[in-house]
């Protein structure tokens, strides 16, 4: 069973979808906790991992958006503030740092959004990790297209994740690779 934490409830919901798709198994058990921001996640993440372990989780994952910071620094921050203090007894722990935010993965295959919004035909995004604020960019694309309802990340990220071409995300977003390697091959990075 997976125990995953993220800065935001919708990040965790999206990760659950992606993990099940990468596993090709909709029944993979996952416990998740979305915090209200990175500060709360860094403060409470360690105890959340201990709780996950107590509930039987054996694979642990943290998702922490890079948000214009060096991904390596974020990785180290999670190691120092969450993984090590948690003292979980498991070699299977992965730290995922989307560049700049998880919405870049959605922008990598923006055409998948058409499965939810049939009238919306956004242009492909060649370099999604080069977009500084991908969440705002995604929502602006929706507003500019004037389709209704508008794209709302908290609602639509997990929905779109069901239809994303995972190969496209891997090609365009190197930050996705650790997640894919962890789920498919059990490769830990923490």
């Amino acid at each position: 069973m997976y125990g995953i934490i993220g800065e935001d409830r919708s990040d965790v919901d999206t990760l659950k979808v992606l993990i099940r798709r990468l596993s090709s198994d909709d029944s993979v058990p996952i416990k998740g906790k979305g915090f209200t921001g990175c500060g709360e996640m860094l403060k409470k993440g360690a105890r959340q991992f201990r709780l996950f372990q107590g509930l039987g989780c054996s694979r642990f994952l943290v998702c922490y958006d890079a948000d214009n910071e060096e991904p390596f620094r974020r990785h180290q921050e999670v190691l120092e503030r969450i993984v090590r203090p948690s003292a979980i007894i498991s070699p299977l722990c992965c730290i995922v740092v989307p560049v700049q935010a998880m919405e870049a993965w959605i922008l990598a295959d923006i055409a998948a959004a058409q499965r939810l919004f049939s009238g919306w035909k956004p242009d492909p995004v060649p370099n999604p990790e080069g977009i500084r604020k991908p969440k705002q960019h995604l929502e602006k694309l929706s507003r500019d297209a004037r389709h209704r309802p508008r794209y709302i990340h908290a609602i639509h990220n997990p929905q779109v994740a069901r239809h994303l071409d995972l190969d496209k995300i891997q090609q365009k977003c190197p930050s996705f690779q650790p997640l894919a390697d962890f789920v498919r091959d059990g490769v830990a990075n923490a």
């Binding site: 209200t36 500060g39 709360e40 403060k43």
Partner: peptide, 11 residues
């Protein structure tokens, strides 16, 4: 700073 490192806005 608090949101970045320590806790939630409600705290």
């Amino acid at each position: 700073s608090f949101l970045r490192l320590e806790g939630s806005l409600s705290d």
